[in-house]
């Protein structure tokens, strides 16, 4: 922040603080004197640790956002929600089928979805949360996995859901089922593993391992670069 910063007033859990304009919520809290332990992780929008609810001046709406990605506005009132009590079923991914029965058994709550779309509106990643929940209800695991892919598990959707669904835990299951069972397998990968297990590259690798630096360097700079 530059010296001649303009300041804005924010209300952190009701207390007023003047903070530099343009600050994110995390920056604003630190500027105010908080040393955060909860409510912050990656600081870049990838971990979902920093769910925050806020109201802007003159607006009736309670909004949700990521504290590390949301810029404060003058008169904003905010509170962090660093933890969401949520159920997570235990399962062994090796013993599941990628179908609707698995969803029924592990996440019976998704069938309570009333399609109110509150979760989609709450999602700071702009994910079509309701749509992936609906896909799960139909047993369309692939669609659910793809729609929910960018979920960072901030918990904001579950907090607002009138049907007490923990959307993101169900999403994680869908993604894992897709990755393990539904995605087509790569033949090259399987072949390469066989080759390695048969020791096809052992001799050459051992030679390189022992090769003097100069010789290795020559080989390196002479290697052909072939990029797809």
């Amino acid at each position: 922040m530059s010296e001649k910063q303009k300041m804005v007033k924010v209300f952190i859990m009701g207390e007023a603080y003047d903070v530099p304009e343009g600050s994110t919520i995390v920056m604003a809290m630190e500027y105010a004197g908080y040393q955060l332990k909860r409510g912050v992780g990656c600081r870049e929008g990838f971990c979902g640790a920093c769910a925050t609810v806020y109201r802007e001046k003159g607006d009736y709406k309670l909004q949700g956002g990521l504290a590390c990605q949301t810029v404060v506005t003058d008169g904003m009132t905010l509170a962090q929600i660093p933890f969401v009590p949520a159920e997570k079923p235990i399962y062994d991914i090796k013993n599941l089928k990628p179908d609707i029965d698995t969803i029924k058994a592990l996440f019976p709550t998704v069938f309570r979805c009333v399609a109110c779309n509150t979760c989609t509106k709450a999602c700071p990643q702009e994910i079509q949360v309701m749509d992936y929940v609906q896909a799960l209800k139909r047993g369309d695991i692939a669609r659910a996995a793809n729609l929910s892919f960018d979920c960072i598990r901030c918990g904001l959707c579950a907090l607002r859901c009138p049907s007490e669904i923990v959307q993101y835990n169900a999403a994680t299951l869908a993604q894992r089922l897709y990755g393990r069972y539904l995605a087509k397998k790569s033949p090259e990968l399987a072949d390469r593993i066989v080759e390695i297990e048969e020791g096809k590259y052992d001799k050459e690798l051992e030679e390189l391992e022992k090769m003097p630096r100069e010789e290795l360097s020559k080989k390196y700079y002479a290697r052909e670069i072939k990029l797809k």
Binding site: K94, G179, R180, A183, P187, L205, L208
Partner: peptide, 29 residues
């Protein structure tokens, strides 16, 4: 050497745990 030789097995291990790698139509990476 350990890094490169274990590489493909590591990818397989992850895929079996359910990591969704970007793939082409035919399943190749």
């Amino acid at each position: 050497k350990a890094l490169v030789n274990d590489g493909p097995v590591a990818i397989k291990w992850l895929e079996e745990l359910g990591v969704m790698f970007d793939k082409n139509q035919d399943g190749s990476m």
